[in-house]
């Protein structure tokens, strides 16, 4: 579910962000959390979680669909949880032409990375900037 499907009023293109989790609830909730914490209600961020039937797993179909829905032409950053989510996105990037161009798998913690990505994308950052902001989230120590 996209938080918003409306392009920015000034016409500038924002990087789309797709959150891939084994769980639909996790993916959609993290998308809402990131948009909320970032204070960007119309953020281009969507969850692609679970299987089409709602069960736990990774669905290529849901990922591709969300990536196209979030794409405004500035590229799409994909953040993932683990295991098959990582492998499925890697496979899509290596083999297929299903994802919008450019698309990038971002090596980041899902929740913290999503917040950083949304803030950066909303500020007009390009795909490289969004990816690097999300990756930097690994360095935020909590102790």
């Amino acid at each position: 579910m996209g938080v918003s499907d409306v392009a920015q009023a000034d016409g500038s293109k924002r990087v789309g962000i797709v959150l891939v989790s084994h769980s639909k609830e996790v993916a959609d909730s993290v998308a809402r959390l990131a948009a909320g914490l970032a204070g960007v209600p119309d953020a281009r961020v969507a969850g692609a979680g679970g299987l089409p039937d709602g069960g736990l797993g990774t669905s290529e179909e849901l990922i591709v669909e969300a990536a196209h829905r979030m794409d405004e032409g500035a590229g799409v950053a994909l953040l993932v949880d683990l295991g098959s989510a990582v492998l499925t996105v890697k496979t899509l990037l290596a083999e297929g032409d299903e994802l919008p161009e450019p698309a990038r798998l971002v090596d980041a913690p899902l929740v913290e990375g999503a917040v950083a990505a949304v803030v950066t994308a909303a500020g007009g950052g390009d795909l490289a900037a969004v990816a690097s902001a999300a990756e930097e989230a690994y360095t935020y120590r909590k102790l």
């Binding site: 990774t58 290529e60 492998l87």
Partner: peptide, 15 residues
């Protein structure tokens, strides 16, 4: 396989 398995074996066997 990639589009239907739903677990890590999908991308692995698919690849």
């Amino acid at each position: 396989l990639v589009s239907t398995v739903g677990g890590a074996s999908g991308p692995l066997y698919g690849t």
